[in-house]
């Protein structure tokens, strides 16, 4: 079983820096979600905080994996998970698990269904598909992209219903996150999708931050 992304050598280091930035921005959103939850006691804010905390953790684990040369070695060929040290494999699965659970929680918040069984079904289906896939990297990117697609649809509908700049920024950010994640599916055969993914995610997280700061300044 192999898990790898093809990455250009010159990008090594930049990717780690960007992943840390994504983690910090996601942590900032989680912090504000919990802060607002403390003020208004709305469960959705707590769930949003939980979602971005999980996504943030996932981003902080990703550079660790890169430091352990998962991406570096991968540029020279597929990486066999069976030959990796146990803690690296564990970190890889933690990265996958946190990212998917974060996105599932976000999707659940946008569905506004308030039914824990729906949440557990969504979460377990998404995780099982990736963990038991013979191509976990492909399955991970496909499931993540699908979840991001549903989140983007939610924000798109909100924007077209009530057009304003901040709604557009969030909608556009999630469209970019979806496209960036979808592009990673091609990183198994080409080097550039990995760079495109990181550039796209940077733009998306900056847009989310701009929208958040604009709102908090009001």
């Amino acid at each position: 079983m192999a898990f790898f992304y093809l990455t250009p050598d010159w990008f090594f280091g930049f990717d780690i820096f960007l992943e840390l930035i994504f983690g910090i921005i996601a942590a900032f959103i989680a912090y504000y979600s919990f802060k607002v939850y403390k003020l208004c006691d709305q469960k959705e804010c707590w769930l949003l905080g939980l979602a971005f905390s999980a996504i943030s953790l996932s981003y902080f684990i990703w550079p660790l994996l890169n430091l352990f040369s998962i991406a570096g070695i991968a540029s020279r060929g597929p990486l066999d998970l069976a030959k990796l040290p146990f803690f690296v494999v564990l970190s890889l699965y933690a990265h996958i698990l946190f990212f998917i659970l974060g996105l599932v929680t976000l999707v659940y918040v946008t569905f506004n269904v308030k039914n824990q069984r729906v949440y557990t079904l969504l979460a377990s289906l998404s995780v099982i598909v990736v963990i038991f896939s013979s191509q976990p990297a492909l399955a991970f990117n496909f499931v993540s992209a699908l979840l991001l697609f549903y989140i983007a649809i939610f924000y798109g509908r909100r924007f077209f219903k009530n057009r304003n700049e901040r709604h557009f920024l969030i909608f556009f950010a999630f469209v970019i996150l979806f496209l960036a994640r979808a592009s990673l599916a091609f990183s198994l055969a080409h080097q550039f999708p990995y760079v495109i993914n990181h550039a796209g995610e940077l733009v998306a997280y900056v847009l989310i931050m701009v929208s958040l700061i604009k709102g908090l300044k009001k």
């Binding site: 607002v36 918040v109 939610f154």
Partner: peptide, 22 residues
């Protein structure tokens, strides 16, 4: 009282992320 004082921030944040609590 704290909720009322910070309502502007609560509204803007929840609006941004579509957490209106309909």
């Amino acid at each position: 009282n704290n909720y009322l004082d910070k309502y502007g921030m609560i509204r803007e944040f929840t609006e941004s992320f579509g957490l209106g609590g309909d």
